[in-house]
Every structure is written in C-alpha cells, then in structure tokens.
Design a binder for these strands. Structure first.
Length: 717
DNA sequence: GTAAGTGTTC
C-alpha cells in the first residue's frame, strides 16, 4: 500500500505532459492503471496536457468505471467543444447497456447540459432536465440550475429559464447572473436590469465581474447613459474597474450612448488593452461620426504591431464606408486578403458595403460574385448598394436572384428593398411590394411598416401613406418618425410639424434622435428656419438627446440659409466630434449661397481630408470660386477632379405615366416625345416667371452625361 | 465543476 501513497503524491505533483506518460507507465507496472482512482487522474491529466485520444484510451481500458471517471472524460470532451461526443458518451452512461457502470450525478448533469447548449439541442436538453426531475439522487443544485438556465436562455426560452430560477429560494451569484445574461442576450435589457437590481437590493447578493459585464451590455442596448454610469459606479466600488472584459463592455456602452470623450479617456487609461478594446474604440469613433479618429486609431494599432482580427477589419471598413474613402478602403481590403479574412462572410459583406458607399459598385459586385457563400445580409448589402449608387432598378433584379438562390428575405432585407423601390418612386411597384409584405407576414414589423409609409410618400401617394399610418394601432416611435419624414420629403413641413406636435402632446411615445432628424429635415426642406432651430433646442434641452452629426448637418444648413454663417461655424467648431463630412458639406453649401469664399475654402479644406473622393464638394468649391471670379482656381479644381478620376453621379429621375416608366438625366433628349416634353417645359418656365419665380442659373456646372430612358418592369411578387 | 466583452444589411 505504500506504493499507492507514493503514486498519489506523484500525481498531485504532475504538471506537464511528459510526466503524465511516465506516471502512466508507473501505474501500469504496479498494476494500478485500471484502478478507477488512478484511471480518473490519468484521464484528466492526459486531457489537460497530452491529448484527448490518450485520455479516451485510459477510459476505454478501465473495466469498472466510476462516476468520477465518466465525469472526467465527459468534461474533457466538453472543454474541447466536442459536444456530439460528450452527448454520445452521456447517452451511453444513462442507457442501461453497460449494467455495471454508475449513473450520472449532479456533476455529470451540468456537463451534459453544456453540450446541449453548445449544440442548441433544446429537445435533448429537456430530456436531461427530465432525468434530473426523475432521479432523486441528482439534486437540483445551483450548478445544475445555472446550467439549465443557460441552456434555456441560449435557446431563447426565458420562460423555462425563469421557472428553474424560481425553484431556488436563495439563489447564488451564478443563478442571478445567468438570468441577467439570459435576458440581456435575448434582447430584453429592461428585464435583465430588473434582475440585476433585484439581485443587489432584494437578494442581497454582490454582483461579480460577469454580472456587471451583462448589466453594462443591457444599458448599452438601451443606450441609457445614466443607468450605465450607475453600473460603472458599482463596478468601481467593487474594485472591478480594471477587469478587461468589463472595461471593453463599458467602451461599448459609451460608444452606443454617444459619449466619445468618456470612451476615449477610459481607453487611454486602460492598464491593458486587447484587440477587442481597440476594435471597440474604432467602432465608437465610426458610429459617432469621428471618421478620422477611427482610421487613425486603426493605423496606430497596425503600427504598434497589434494584430487586427476580422471584427477590427469590419469596423475599419465601416469608417471608410461612412467617409466614402475608397483609398483607405482598398488598403484595408488588401490587408484583409493577406489575412484570409475575405473568406469571412461578415468581412466580405462589409467590403461590399464599403465599395458601394464609396461609389464603386462594380468592385462590390465582383467581390459578391467571388463569395463562396452568400447569406441574406450579403444579398441585402448588394441590393441596397445599387440603390445608393442610383441604380435602384438593379435592386429589383438582385431581389429576384436572391429568391432564386433560395434565400428568403428577413425584415431588414425587406426594408432595404422597400427603400430601394422608394428611390424609383414607382407606385405600381410599391403596390406589388406591399402585397408581398402582406403575403409574407412582414406587415406587423414596425420597420417594414415605416418603410412602406416612406415608400408611399416618395411615390407621391402621401394619402395612402397617411391611411397606412392611421391604420396602425400601436404607433411606436419609428412609425411616427416615418410619417413626419413622409410629409417632410413632400415639402409639407407644416403637416410634418402637426404630426410631431400630435405625437408629443397626444401620445405616450417619446420622440428619439431619428424623430428629431425627421422633423429637422422637414423644416429644412420647407425652409422653416426658426421652427427648426427651436426644435433643435427642444431636442437638447427638453429631451436631453445628444445631437449626432446628421442633426448638426441640418442645423448648419438651416443657419447657413439665413446667412448666419458665423453661428453655423460656431456650431461646427463646438461639435463633440468635428469630423463628420456632411456637416462641413452643409457649411460649404451655405458658403456657396452667401458667396463666402474664405469660409468656403476652410470648410473645403476639412472636407477634402475627410472625404477626398466626393466630386460634389470639389464642384461646390469651384462654384464658389466662379462666383468670386477666381477662374484660375476653378480651372485647377477641374483638373484635380479629372486627375482623381472623380465623377459626379448624375441625378436620374424616374417618372411613371399611365403605367409606363421613363427615366432620364439632365438635358436628356433621347425620348421619342422629347420635343413635346421640352415644349411643355418652356411653357411652364414662362408661367413660373409670371408668378415671379427667378431660377438660380448663376453656376451651372453640371457634368452632363448622355442618359437614356429605361423601361422598368414591375416585379412579380 | 458552472457564466462575460468588439463585427456585416437598418
């Protein structure tokens, strides 16, 4: 028996793969290798240091397997994410085919449940749950409980998870945390936070770092800065504020709540950063319109030798997409190709999106063709990309191909399709798609509903849009915003303001940043300058919403129109992130109206850095120079545009007349009835002059391409 | 012996 004790001590001291093999031969020599105690030890050590194969061999060769040996083996497979094998072994364990083997205990069950969770095998998980209820020997302890909650929540069954949770009178931190995490990951952040606060206040259980991570994520989902800061405070009080995952989730919180400065300072103070920290910070800059900062940070990361992963690449690509920065985008594409990230469907889709937003649809399509696998997201990116490039008619074809490829649209793809269609403004098509939406049961989706309202508005059928709007019983903020935007694009600013007023005064729905964007742009389209500025103040003061770059863009545009260029510049200068291209674009536009060459040059300087390939900005500046009679500057800019190979996308109009669809560009004379059309235009012009309208023809520098009329077919849904 | 953080189309 002395040899046995020595062996036990040797096993305790074992800490490398080499010594496991030595121990194995020692036990074989002493005839103890199949003793279930040593077999279990050997099994676990082999799995840890050597290989699962060796561990399995020990398991297979042991005649009388104790529950410990079973558990050690199951755990080894589960740790390596070999869930099928784990469940196969577990199934052998519970079936009676090997009579002398022991039955699962409450150490076995969580392992089996974890394998079920990994496979999302809800049905088998329920069998395991049934086993727990049937066998009195298996206690429903907290380990089993949280594994069950985990299974149910990963399978989207929070009701079942709650039932399990309620069986415990004194839940521990794991059980509480499983519930918080479960609700958070199932898109129910309110419930997650309720559990979090109940845990602390009623349960009197201290949250640990994982609970806090989930609570912060819930706040991020709600974009609730105040609540998030509270949780941050709790984290600091509990001494978790240097936990890497926790700080990373805080970065995400501050990104989602537009608190770029807080995020940046947190990022700067991090004692250690990993690739997720860098990616999160890049995403934070991108989503808050600080494109230069995002790209700078990405390049800094590369310079420091920190390896970006596919997520980092996606974030950096988004920055290029927002800025329309094709050069940087191509560089990142090269990097992605080197690292074989192009195979990642998410990266490929982000690349398609980037090329589309950088007005390079051909490159996007080439990449799409090369993709070995496409999903509904990549199809949707292609579809909406064409619409963004003035080729919305192609979107309809893409949609048909997508259906032939047996990819069914989800709600987002549907929204994209409806938006593409609204670019065309064809009522016939709108009606077809509306029918499709009803047929495919998308009509209760609020985003789809809002897109239909937008679609009808843009087709000129504001009445149908309004009827649709009135027909929706539980109008939420998205629906209200869509109707306001609908009146806005129609130039019915007063109607838009009426709807907004009704929403604020007679509904329980609170306007959000999108609503304010709709109202502000409605004011801008109808020239309601004072109302717009008043509403902007209301947004900041009454609703405490942080204006994003788009809001600033409109307000700069409004101020610019009234000639208050100084005020507009002031706003641009005190914006939280002064690098959003279209805000500068709005300022540049205002300088064109009011002939301010100096300010225009300054705005253009910033713009050419931020969005170097946007032909429109060069043309705007050249128009400013033209008005100031600085023709040499005009010539320089024209050369620059040519050298850069930039093309201003020509505006294409589509008209529906008696069921036929005609499209044309400026100066287009290809239509068979061209003479008649231009004759009528002449008559209209005379009438307009009679009504004392003077057209603004000071600076006509449109690049005219020969366009053609295209016939579009209504898609059959 | 359990759990957690960044990503594609809105």
């Amino acid at each position: 028996m002395k040899g046995r004790e020595v062996l036990v001590n040797l096993f305790e001291a074992c800490n490398s793969g080499k010594s496991v093999a030595q121990l194995h031969s020692l036990t074989l020599k002493d005839g103890l290798a199949h003793d279930s105690f040593f077999a279990t030890k050997l099994n676990a050590l082999y799995a840890k240091y050597e290989s699962l194969g060796h561990a399995r061999k020990v398991f297979d060769e042991t005649p009388n397997r104790t529950v410990y040996l079973w558990n050690a083996t199951l755990r080894s497979y589960c740790r390596e994410n070999q869930w099928e094998e784990t469940l196969y072994l577990f199934h052998n364990m519970i079936s009676d085919s090997r009579g002398n083997d022991e039955k699962p205990d409450n150490f076995t069950i969580p392992i089996a449940l974890k394998a079920c969770t990994g496979l999302r095998a809800l049905a088998y998980g329920k069998i395991v749950h049934g086993f727990v209820k049937k066998h009195e020997k298996v206690a429903l302890d907290m380990f089993v409980g949280s594994a069950l909650i985990e299974l149910y929540s990963k399978c989207g069954q929070m009701g079942d998870a709650l039932k399990v949770f309620n069986e415990f009178s004194q839940p521990d931190v794991f059980l509480w945390t499983s519930m918080v995490t479960g609700y958070e990951q199932n898109g129910n952040p309110e419930e997650a936070l309720e559990f979090f606060f109940r845990m602390v206040m009623v349960g009197r259980v201290d949250p640990d770092r994982v609970t806090l991570v989930s609570a912060v994520s819930a706040c991020a989902q709600l974009s609730n800065f105040r609540l998030g800061s509270c949780v941050h405070g709790v984290a600091i009080r509990n001494g978790f504020n240097s936990d890497l995952s926790l700080v990373n989730s805080l970065l995400n919180l501050y990104a989602k709540t537009g608190s770029v400065k807080t995020a940046a300072s947190l990022f700067g103070k991090m004692p250690e950063k990993d690739v997720i920290s860098w990616s999160s910070m890049i995403a934070c800059y991108t989503h808050n319109g600080a494109i230069l900062e995002a790209l700078n940070l990405f390049n800094e990361m590369i310079d420091r030798g920190i390896e970006p992963n596919s997520v980092t690449v996606v974030n950096a690509l988004q920055a290029c997409a927002v800025a329309g920065n094709l050069e940087e985008g191509k560089k990142i594409h090269e990097l992605a190709t080197r690292k074989c990230f192009e195979l990642d469907i998410t990266v490929a889709t982000a690349l398609i999106d980037m090329y589309m937003k950088c007005l390079a649809p051909q490159e996007a399509f080439d990449l799409f063709k090369r993709m070995p696998k496409k999903d509904v997201v990549s199809w949707a990116a292609l579809l909406s990309g064409y619409a963004q490039n003035g080729m919305a008619y192609k979107s309809m074809g893409v949609f048909r191909n997508m259906l032939s490829d047996e990819t069914q649209p989800d709600a987002v793809a549907m929204v994209k399709l409806l938006t593409a269609c609204s670019e065309l403004g064809i009522l016939q098509q709108a009606l077809c798609l509306h029918a499709y939406v009803i047929k495919r049961a998308f009509k209760n989706n609020i985003f789809v509903g809002a897109s239909l309202i937008e679609l009808y508005s843009k087709c000129g059928s504001i009445d149908i849009a309004n009827r649709l709007f009135e027909g929706i019983k539980d109008k939420d903020v998205v629906i209200w915003s869509a109707m306001i935007a609908g009146y806005g694009v129609h130039g019915q600013g007063a109607e838009a303001l009426k709807v907004f007023d009704k929403m604020v005064k007679h509904s329980a729905v609170k306007p959000n940043d999108v609503t304010f964007l709709s109202v502000l742009s409605a004011c801008s389209h109808s020239g309601l300058v004072e109302e717009g500025i008043e509403i902007f103040n209301m947004m900041v003061r009454e609703y405490q919403l942080k204006p994003g770059p788009e809001h600033y863009g409109i307000i700069v545009d409004l101020l610019g129109r009234t000639g208050e260029l100084d005020k507009a510049m002031e706003i641009v200068e005190c914006m939280p992130n002064a690098s959003a291209p279209h805000v500068w674009g709005a300022l540049l536009g205002a300088c064109r109206i009011h002939n301010d060459t100096k300010l225009g040059e300054a705005a253009a300087k910033s713009l050419f850095l931020l969005d170097p390939n946007h032909a429109g900005y060069y043309i705007l500046l050249s128009n400013i120079y033209a008005m100031d009679n600085k023709w040499e500057h005009v010539a320089d800019l024209r050369t620059l545009i040519r050298e850069k190979g930039l093309n201003k996308m020509s505006g294409q109009s589509v008209v529906e007349a008696r069921g036929d669809i005609h499209s044309f560009v400026a100066g287009d004379r290809r239509h068979q009835d061209s003479d008649q059309i231009f004759g009528l235009l002449g008559t209209l012009e005379v009438k307009m002059r009679e009504e004392s309208y003077v057209p603004d023809v000071d600076f006509q520098q449109h690049d005219m391409h020969g366009g053609c009329f295209t016939d579009l077919k209504c898609i059959k849904a």
